[in-house]
């Protein structure tokens, strides 16, 4: 901010102001530094806390396909695989849904729908993960087990992705976790897409409409291409949320850290394995679990940085600051 150039005050008062300003500056700097220290301490703790295991195993830690804490075999690959699979399902299901809702609400839907539907979608974001897990376990899983998965298996079972010949259909599994994650990230993606479409200059859309295109064409050929970077950013933010989601996944995924492409079968994610095993782990296992935390931290770090860069670029192009 601009410094005031002249002050017409008495010297004593001026001193008081100076001291107050210095203290104020120091206090705010303290707040900012605290924030920085929190991030640094997290990074430091994750690295030093897991080094005994990650440093010893090296890349084997990341590529090892066996996680068996009792045999002290710590391979992160099954949980990385589970994390990526569930997040990918979530993005395919929830991400596209989120984009579709916002595109529809901003451009196509009747005006009166915008507020109530946006409100309800935002409400979805306020519901805690644990409640999704509880509802998923009590209501969704029995429904999927009885009504949906047997059909899915009989229609697409031949691909190998939806059940193997003799696998039981439990209802808990990678697909269930991915679908619930998908619902959970809808609000994140929808909110960013909404904002990105709203910042597209009105003149561009009007120009397109004036040239004779209908609303859908204006949306698809002009507005979405303009905002595409930001929408991608929103999808990636959603991905980031899905990667780190813990409770709902823990309650729904079946918690077996195995490398399997059976989406109806159990799996585990980085976060869910930490959640189930951290509290009662032996020291070596805890070290390895912190290593999983480090992997998760790096994933979400990279994804957030990328997403925010994309969103910021669209905002800046539209003349909005920051």
């Amino acid at each position: 901010m601009t410094e005031p150039t002249q002050r017409t005050t008495f010297p004593a008062q001026g001193n008081r102001i100076k001291i107050a300003d210095k203290l104020f500056g120091a206090a705010t700097f303290f707040g900012a530094a605290f924030l920085m220290v929190v991030v640094l301490v997290i990074a430091y703790q994750l690295v030093t806390g897991s080094w005994a295991e990650v440093g010893k195993d090296g890349t084997a830690f990341f590529t090892g396909s066996d996680w068996n804490a009792s045999a002290e075999k710590y391979g992160a690959l099954p949980t990385i695989w589970g994390t990526l699979l569930t997040s990918l399902i979530a993005i395919l299901f929830g991400g596209l849904t989120g984009v579709a809702i916002s595109a529809y609400l901003v451009e196509l839907a009747p005006k009166w729908l915008f507020k109530p539907v946006s409100f309800l979608v935002d409400l979805l974001a306020a519901i805690p993960s644990i409640i999704f897990g509880l509802w998923g376990r009590e209501e969704l899983v029995p429904y999927l087990r009885k009504g949906v998965y047997p059909e899915l298996k009989s229609v697409f079972g031949w691909t190998g992705w939806f059940g193997t010949e003799n696998s039981p259909i439990v209802g808990n599994g990678i697909l269930t976790a991915g679908l619930v994650l998908g619902v959970m990230i809808i609000p994140t993606v929808a909110a960013v897409t909404r904002e990105m479409l709203l910042v597209v200059p009105k003149t561009m859309r009007d120009g397109s409409l004036a040239l004779g295109s209908n609303k859908t064409e204006a949306l698809i050929k002009v507005q979405i291409p303009y905002a595409i970077g930001g929408i991608l950013g929103g999808l990636i933010l959603g991905l980031g949320r899905a990667l780190g989601e813990t409770m709902a996944v823990t309650m729904l995924i079946g918690n077996n850290p195995v490398l399997s492409k059976d989406l109806l079968g159990p799996g585990a994610t980085l976060a869910s394995l930490i959640a189930t095993n951290f509290a009662d782990a032996t020291n070596n296992t805890r070290t390895a679990l912190i290593g999983l935390g480090l992997v998760l931290f790096c994933f979400t770090l990279a994804i957030n940085v990328l997403a925010r860069y994309l969103v910021r670029r669209v905002r800046q192009r539209s003349g909005l600051s920051a």
Binding site: V38, V39, G244, F297
Partner: peptide, 21 residues
């Protein structure tokens, strides 16, 4: 930038922080 990093922090990692500290 760090504030943005912290915004995307998975809550389970905050738990690890509380545990180790």
């Amino acid at each position: 930038f760090l504030s943005e990093v912290l915004t995307g922090l998975p809550s389970i990692i905050a738990g690890i922080l509380g545990y180790t500290l």
